[in-house]
Nucleic acid binder design. Structure first.
Lengths: 264, 264
DNA sequence: ATATGTGAAGGGTTTCACAGCC
DNA sequence: GGCTGTGAAACCCTTCACATAT
């Protein structure tokens, strides 16, 4: 993505491919596990298996970072952990706010995987006045009114949106106006943001729909059935896709009935 | 295009690119919203804007499905909704089970976006005996012991794993052995599955790490600062990445302290 | 006049296979 | 001998631009 940006003469080969960046956290997790078990070195083959990719891809990925391996030996686990962490920017502290504290927001707040990687939950924000002051994951929920103040006084540049879809764009606008430049969006909506702001989306129902597509394909193929298990299903009357219901569900969002953020 | 596969005389060009499949749910959502507002037709330009892609891509995507548009006019909303739903396999009923009913599992169970698209939550499963019988989203949680029985008697082919990472592979193995062929995995682990089984992964911390990478880049660039907002942050002492903590958090998973599934 | 459908060009990503170094 | 690092090939995806249809 990105339009091209300032293409400088490459200090040391600037520009790690997006696909590679997306895999670095995977490698980091596998390396972290090895580090815990005090394994000193790994080969590309072993590490690739642990990360679920093939070894040629892994080596190519690492080649964009530099030459951190030793031929005939492999990679030093500790050294690689450090290098990848640095490349991803995890050696610094990233305060984040989570907006919309329903089941999903609470799950995110409780996820230790954030804190341990340098993401510090600076605040939990919800529009429901009844939530204000209630502790979730050991942090008191604050009201939406405080949003701008929280962002600015904590220097927050990353925001997580876990509100219903109907509130997401408004929350997004307020986050961006207050200085947030990276957003992780769990609401099933397309967010519009100004240039320079990154948005990543996690969409729970899209993932299931992609699985359904492939599942359907399996059912349709009757060439050389490998797994002896009839796919598909035919008990209940084929539920007609209820369009109105889907739209209504999208409006509520990927969470229960959380009373969420409304415009100020 | 494509490797060739069983290159039959092309009934109507089999084989939709994976990238296209991944966008169909996006289009479907946008179309559903239009349908609700009783909009009869859309142009590729309008629909693309609503879905957050560019119009050339959208037209190319639709061309893989067939010629469902009218030149000079646009696409019939209702017709397209039906065609995409059918292509994705959403015109049939897909019973799914969710394993691991912590905050995340509960959020998923409550998500109306599943039910409204043909995904019927057939069962909620958790390893904690204390959870058994408790209703979540109107469905009584069942104990892990029932897993195989539930899968088989309901003809479930799609499973969602929302357990801690430590339990994920075991749950996965049991699901697959019982007949599940598509898995949506929220646990921060690489799952190993036999051929013919699809796995999709949603990893909360990876998304944040990717954002951090780009955020760091923004901070580093001092060429022509567009948004007058200093990136980065320097208040707290730069949190050294605590590897052990990250590994421990991964083991617990993307949810709180949910007592989850243990081997039978 | 207007907007789709699609060859062709362009860019990015993955895989191959082997040269290079330990 | 073993394993990394990397050009080159193959593949996939996106974008362009225009023929085609209403």
């Amino acid at each position: 993505m990105a339009t091209g940006r300032t293409h400088r003469p490459a200090t040391r080969s600037r520009g790690i491919p997006e696909a590679t960046v997306a895999r670095l956290p995977l490698y980091l997790r596998a390396l972290t596990a090895l580090s815990e078990r005090s394994v000193p070195t790994v080969s590309s083959e072993e590490l690739a298996a642990a990360a679920g990719v093939n070894s040629a891809k892994l080596r190519k990925d690492f080649s964009y970072l530099g030459s951190y391996g030793t031929r005939g030996v492999g990679y030093d686990v500790e050294y690689l952990v450090y290098q990848i962490s640095r490349e991803l920017g995890l050696t610094q502290d990233w305060p984040v706010v989570i907006v919309g504290i329903g089941n999903l927001g609470a799950a995110l707040a409780n996820y230790g995987g954030f804190a341990s990687r340098g993401f510090r939950v600076a605040a939990l924000i919800d529009a429901d006045p009844a939530m204000a002051g209630k502790p979730v994951a050991g942090i008191a929920v604050q009201h939406t009114d405080e949003l701008e103040h929280i962002i600015e006084s904590n220097g927050v540049s990353i925001g997580v949106i876990a509100t219903p879809a109907g509130a997401a764009q408004q929350v997004c606008d307020r986050l961006v106006a207050a200085g947030v430049t990276s957003i992780l969006n769990f609401a099933p909506t397309v967010l519009t943001v100004p240039d320079g702001v990154d948005v990543r989306k996690v969409d729970l129902s899209i993932e299931l729909q992609i699985l359904a597509f492939h599942e359907q394909r399996k059912a349709g193929e009757e060439g050389g059935a490998e797994a002896g298990h009839e796919a598909g299903h035919e008990s209940a009357p084929p539920a007609e896709v209820t369009r109105a219901a889907a739209a209504a569900a999208d409006r509520k969002g990927p969470d229960g009935d959380v009373p969420a953020v409304m415009p100020a």
